[in-house]
Design a protein around this nucleic acid. Structure first.
Length: 201
DNA sequence: AGGACGATTAACT
DNA sequence: GTTAATCGTCCTG
């Protein structure tokens, strides 16, 4: 089976809500020396501009948010709660801070390695933003990576998009004291894929 | 310089 | 449902 095409910059150079929706079903791939880890993206969330009071860029350009102002197709990997790493892909255009948070994947390749890394049941191997980064060995070393670079060891491969009837939209998770309308706006996208194919989604 | 809190998770009761 | 873990980031003074 030939390697599928990596998604290029054009895929990410669109309105963030469109990119977040289009990513459902695409294959997130992490290459290591000896093996390949991958999964189909099952949940995403959009963070759009300095006005979005849930977006890290609400504070403007800072050392942390600088990468969100880069050209689309860059990885924004941030550290939170003193423990966890979360993965985003920069969208839209250079100079405008926006990104899609990857919140879940359905493991496909390297499941044994993910099991070993996570030490948890398969049903909850990678169904959370900080779970998938642990399963795929993604951390701050990958912050700022251009995932459209053909040499990159983290990228997204083209795959059939999730069908419309299986996509659900809801408010973003973990909004805490975020003011309205940002707290309740439905910028979370989830693929309700068949349980019999990928338990735990 | 100090403190509150976080785009979370897992282990409790 | 509640809470600890654990520290970078950002805001206040």
């Amino acid at each position: 089976m030939a390697e599928a095409a990596r998604l290029g910059r054009d895929f990410f150079a669109h309105p963030t809500l469109e990119v977040a929706r289009a990513l459902l079903g695409q294959r997130l791939v992490r290459l290591r020396d000896e093996y390949r880890l991958s999964g189909l993206i099952s949940e995403t969330e959009a963070y759009i501009g300095e006005e979005d009071q849930a977006c890290h860029a609400r504070a403007g350009r800072t050392p942390r948010t600088q990468i969100m102002y880069a050209s689309p197709g860059h990885a924004y990997v941030y550290f939170t709660y003193g423990i966890h790493w979360c993965l985003n892909f920069v969208t839209e255009r250079e100079g405008f801070p926006a990104a899609v948070l990857i919140r879940g994947i359905a493991p496909v390749e390297g499941v044994e390695v993910m099991r070993a890394r996570r030490g948890r049941p398969d049903s909850i191997l990678a169904n959370g933003p900080a779970k998938l980064t642990q399963a795929l060995d993604i951390d701050g070393r990958l912050n700022g990576l251009d995932i459209c670079d053909p040499q990159a060891l983290l990228f997204v491969e083209a795959a059939p998009s999730a069908p419309d009837e299986a996509v659900r939209r809801s408010p973003r998770v973990g909004m805490g004291d975020t003011p309205e309308p940002w707290r309740s706006i439905a910028w979370n996208f989830r693929w309700k894929y068949p349980q019999e194919i990928f338990p735990g989604g």
